[in-house]
Design a protein around this nucleic acid. Sequence first.
DNA 1: CTGAAAGCGCTTACAG
DNA 2: CTGAAAGCGCTTACAG
Lengths: 331, 331
Amino acid sequence: MATLKDVARLACVDVSTVSRALNNTSYVHPDTKARVYAAAKELGYHPNVVAQALRQGRRHTIGVVVPRLHLAIFSEILQGIEEEGRRQGYATLVCVTEDDAATEKECLGRLRGGFADGIIIAATGHNGRLLRDIRASGIPVLQIVRKQDPRISSVTVDYVSCGYDAVQYLYGKGCRHIGLISGSLHLAPYKERQDGYCRAVRELGLEENFSACSQPVNSFEYGYECAEQLLEEVPGLDAIIAAVDIQGLGAIRVLKERSVEMPGRVRVISLTGHSVGGMLETSMTSMEMPAYEMGSKAVRMIVEEIEAPEDRKPGLQHLALAATLVKREST
Amino acid sequence: MATLKDVARLACVDVSTVSRALNNTSYVHPDTKARVYAAAKELGYHPNVVAQALRQGRRHTIGVVVPRLHLAIFSEILQGIEEEGRRQGYATLVCVTEDDAATEKECLGRLRGGFADGIIIAATGHNGRLLRDIRASGIPVLQIVRKQDPRISSVTVDYVSCGYDAVQYLYGKGCRHIGLISGSLHLAPYKERQDGYCRAVRELGLEENFSACSQPVNSFEYGYECAEQLLEEVPGLDAIIAAVDIQGLGAIRVLKERSVEMPGRVRVISLTGHSVGGMLETSMTSMEMPAYEMGSKAVRMIVEEIEAPEDRKPGLQHLALAATLVKREST
DNA sequence: CTGAAAGCGCTTACAG
DNA sequence: CTGAAAGCGCTTACAG
């Protein structure tokens, strides 16, 4: 790879002049500039971003930490982050934690110390202290999807309303025995969806029907086993609310296998739609998350913080977007 | 952030000694070492990876360029890359191109010049020259999923066999009028699947039934419209082969809407299974791709090349893994 | 308008 | 066993 020095030699000027010419950072005589451009082109010069980063103290890289990508909404969010990041001149570094606290810790350890100028994270909630340390050391941190720590800015969805609205909608459809498939209450989105569910159920004078099993929370199997449980334990069950799409698929599968008519006898709705719902044999009603938008909004927020001068950094910000109820055949 | 200099000052030694102690790069007196460790700990020292990268000429970062992540096999491959990369000490930089040549070019432009030590790419095929330039400039490049250029190493699946085996399997089930939903023949995987399909169809004395429409290739809508087309144009159609899962969903949906019995009258199989097939109301038979393994294999290959001494770089390598036929209810 | 110098934070021969 | 020095490839005050 050609360096500034090579270009300078070929153009018969000092490296500083080459730098200024190429970066348009101060006036350079047109003739000189032309020589520099020609030399750079001839050598196929590309600036070494590592050297620039060291010199300017900015990497132009955003670190993203998520629990998983495959069959999850995080893949769409990541696309939003990457595209907006590119537009703003930032590269996207991704880490997958599988919701394991130790893995998350390892990832964060790497990200600090120069790997990233800012970190966007869907955290497990088990490394709050470390996250605050990183923030304190000058690297902006932004929570996405999961607001595990109120002391750190976030971009989320109004999960309480998702749960609440889903119950109200099903009630309007005539449902009176509504079961919930949620997940670890340690994670804010599950907790809040359940809160919304409980509030609506109480207001409407219905009973609460929870479910749980030992499968990994974000899985088809979890939805499958929980749906079985609800069918067995709730007499007259007429609706199932699944926290995420993939659980909803499990629930639909159980109904199919047991020849329980859907939506005739049991209606199904997912609270984390990410557009697969519309592609099913019987399409699934869901609260669609503005995933791509969440990603791009997150980037804009964190870049703003990265680039703000030291004395006027923005304060704590919590942005909660609305999900959209998309009615389909499963209800 | 504390630097080496800060640690050196606190431990009353030279920075070079700190570096040696922390990196275990040559013998340091135990007492000195202890002082250095204590100082580093007290200051919460983390090495600046940018400075290390500049000095050592290695970023310990792998760039990944893919067309999309959401609802695609690339999200699973990326998980494999990221995890194996982390194990090998490499961070993962991701770029999403949407199969747009200009976007791909932009991404590659950023990745060279220090951003990444190596590039793993599922290319559009429109920047072959640039890719070879990058390779020539000393940055290893590895094609994944799509072997668009035989002069660059690759990790793929034996797509020809996928197409061939699918036809043979359906023939064994009694199908005689098999339609194909594929995609841009400019992309190797679609082309090769079609080649396999054609070979089997010819050997068995069946007719070729292609389909195409103006929707984006990798979409539910593409599968939907192509399936409609096959139903209309192929008398006695009794099987549909879809190149990717999401097209298969579109095909299944059409059959459902038209009350065409599946698998009774028409069987459906996908050639790019990524585990959503088993989660459907009627589960879908597919050729499952070893996606995660492809990702980790790709990392091992590229890291080997990155770390090989200049005079003994490995030569061209093309690794084609086998897909696995997973029989489910749709056939 | 342009050159010479300092320095970002490290690592690594080179001495001693 | 450890220090002093050079240098990775840039950018940016500082002179002139």
